[in-house]
Structure formats: C-alpha cells, structure tokens
C-alpha cells in the first residue's frame, strides 16, 4: 500500500523528529546531564513512527526500553517536551522525575510506559486488551518487544492467553538482531522469529521494518483484525540499531561493515528518496521540514535544561493511593 504524498510527508517528519530527539538525548547523556543509562532507537524510526501512525489516542501502547520514539510520537504535541525533560530527570517530566528513560508514560494518550523488566509488559498488555473484550469496545493494544525479549517465559504465557481468548493485542517485535551483544540466531532456534506465533495459530509476519510504508500497511491490517475481534497478530519488523545497546556501548560485537550496510537502509533515507522520486518533493520542502523539526527540538531541549530537578522529598509521594509513607 503506497502512502499518499501528504501522509508520507507527515510520517517522514515524525521519523525525523525521533532521530533528532535521540541525537540530542545522546549528546546530553554523554556529557553527563542525563543521569543513568539510555537506550537509543536511531535506525529504528520507521517501526516506531509507522505503528504509532496507525493507532488512535484511545489505543493502548506499551513501548519498550528502546521506545523513546513511540513515546514521543504518542504524546500530544504540547507534552512532548515533557517526555524529554523526564529523561533529563526533571520535575516537569511526565513522571515528575520518578521514571526516567525507561518509564516515560502518558495515560492521557494511553502510553502505558513501564518496561524495565524485559517481557513484563508482554503480560501486562493482556490486561488492557482484556478490558476491551470485557467492556465490549474496539480499543486495541500494541506491545513492543525486542528479539532478545522473546526468550522470556512471559511471551509464551501472553500469546497462549491472547490467542485462546482472541484478545485485541498486537505484538510488534522489532528484530534489531541483537540483545545487548547476543545475536538473535544464537539465542533462538527459529531462523525467522515470527514463526513463533504459528504454534499458537496467530497470524504472524516478518517485514522490512525500515520501510515505513510497509510498516504502516501491515500494522493497519493487524489493527483492523484486532478491532473486529479476530484476535492477536505478531509482526516481526527487521531493523537495526545504529548505536550500541546503551549510549556509551562501543558495540564491539558487531562484525565489520554490518553497521555501514544497515546505514544504507536508513529508514529516513528510504522515505526521503521516495518522496523526491515518486512524489516530486523538492529539496526546499525537505529543508523546510528539517527546520520545523529543529525549532521543535530546540524547544524541548531548552525546556529540559531549564526545568528544575524534583524535590528529593517528593520521593515519598504516590507509594500508596491512600496513605502517606514516612519521609526522612
């Protein structure tokens, strides 16, 4: 399914926003402004932007640890700066500084956050999908996971249950080839990970995760099935992360030339070429998009830098819904 020029322009801008967001985050992670460790999704923009593009605000999204892109794009425009300031550990962050990179959530757009434990959201997502059945509505749930995460036992429990109960749940498995240093062929028996779904009689696909048009087309089909009550779908999206596992990992485990080969398949490059060649988009139009994105990102960065850090003593808030925990 080829996208219209306008649609492709829009998702191109989305992808560029992710790319630039991640690049800025990397700068501030490396210079120590952002505490902790950060998993960057540069190289995987198409999979995130494409999936979010298909979803509504009322659909449930469980991004994973490499999910800044999905998180930012799910958020309302005015809240995106707060996604970044959360990663900067600031009080204005969307979790008030409690969560950080791996837990940025925003319930107003049903971005459910939480993903520090690999394979954990895979079963939590059953609950939101179950809710749609219990309440008889057509909200769908998407859970993002990596190739490595498929090794967790919860994946079996989740797909077993979602397939049995025909829950509106879409497994987006971004196969970026590595779980930290371990190549997926070293930890799984399947050559193609999507065959995992077949044992549960779940429709399963492997697609080019760097081609946003393909991502949108297949995700749309899965979402349609889910909305009609036909149950879960598994989509394996082949992709590659350009950075190491976390910001700072030199990724010495990659064979020479592998990264360069994948950079040729840059999702942004693919989309840009298509825009120019097929839709006659000019270099000036592309430049205008870049400029818009720059202005946007500059706003997030300024907001994140200027925002104050949270009050340490607020750490005792929200442990329980109905009682206080003693402070120092």
């Amino acid at each position: 399914m080829a996208l219209s020029k306008e649609h492709l322009l829009k998702v191109y801008e989305d992808m560029l926003l992710i790319r630039r967001f991640e690049e800025e985050v990397e700068v501030y992670a490396k210079n120590g402004t952002i505490p902790g460790f950060i998993h960057l999704s540069i190289g995987q923009e198409a999979a995130q932007a494409g999936v979010v593009d298909v979803l509504k605000d009322t659909d449930y999204k469980f991004p994973d640890h490499r999910g800044h892109g999905a998180i930012v794009l799910s958020s309302k425009a005015e809240d995106r700066k707060r996604c970044m300031s959360e990663i900067f550990a600031k009080a204005s962050g969307i979790n008030g500084g409690r969560g950080g990179s791996m837990h940025v959530h925003d319930l107003s757009v049903r971005n459910m956050g939480f993903n520090g434990i690999q394979g954990s959201t895979v079963v939590t997502a059953l609950g939101t999908a179950f809710n749609s059945v219990y309440r008889k509505n057509d909200d769908v749930t998407v859970v993002f996971m990596g190739d490595g995460t498929l090794g967790e036992g919860t994946c079996h429990e989740s797909m077993n249950m979602s397939a049995t109960w025909k829950l509106p749940l879409i497994y987006v498995l971004i196969n970026n080839h590595y779980a930290i240093s371990t190549h997926y062929t070293e930890s799984h028996p399947q050559k193609q990970l999507s065959t995992w779904g077949l044992g549960y009689e779940v429709p399963s696909f492997t697609i080019d995760g760097n081609d946003i048009e393909e991502v949108i087309e297949v995700t749309q089909k899965a979402v349609d099935r889910a909305r009609k009550g036909e149950g879960p779908t598994l989509i394996e999206m082949m992709s590659y992360r350009w950075q190491g596992h976390f910001s700072g990992d030199p990724a010495a485990y990659r064979p020479d030339g592998e990264l360069e080969a994948w950079k040729e398949k840059d999702p942004l490059k693919i989309a840009k070429e298509r825009l120019q060649e097929k839709h006659g988009v000019t270099a000036d139009e592309i430049k205008a998009i870049s400029e818009r994105v720059e202005v946007e990102i500059a706003k997030y960065v300024k907001f994140s830098l200027e925002s104050p850090v949270p009050k340490p003593e607020d750490a005792v808030k929200y442990v329980y819904t109905d009682r206080e925990v003693e402070g120092r």
């Binding site: 459910m112 079963v123 939590t124 997502a125 609950g127 179950f130 077993n160 249950m161």
Partner: peptide
Amino acid sequence: TALSESAITGLSCGASVCGLRP
C-alpha cells in the same frame, strides 16, 4: 485461565489501569 500465574497477575495489572477491579 491457563496455568499462567504471570499472565493472571499481569492481566490484572493492565485491567486495573483501565478501571476494572480484578
């Protein structure tokens, strides 16, 4: 349910957030 304690409790978490009381 199936013998799936993780799925049972995971589902309960997710459904709770949607306002249900498992």
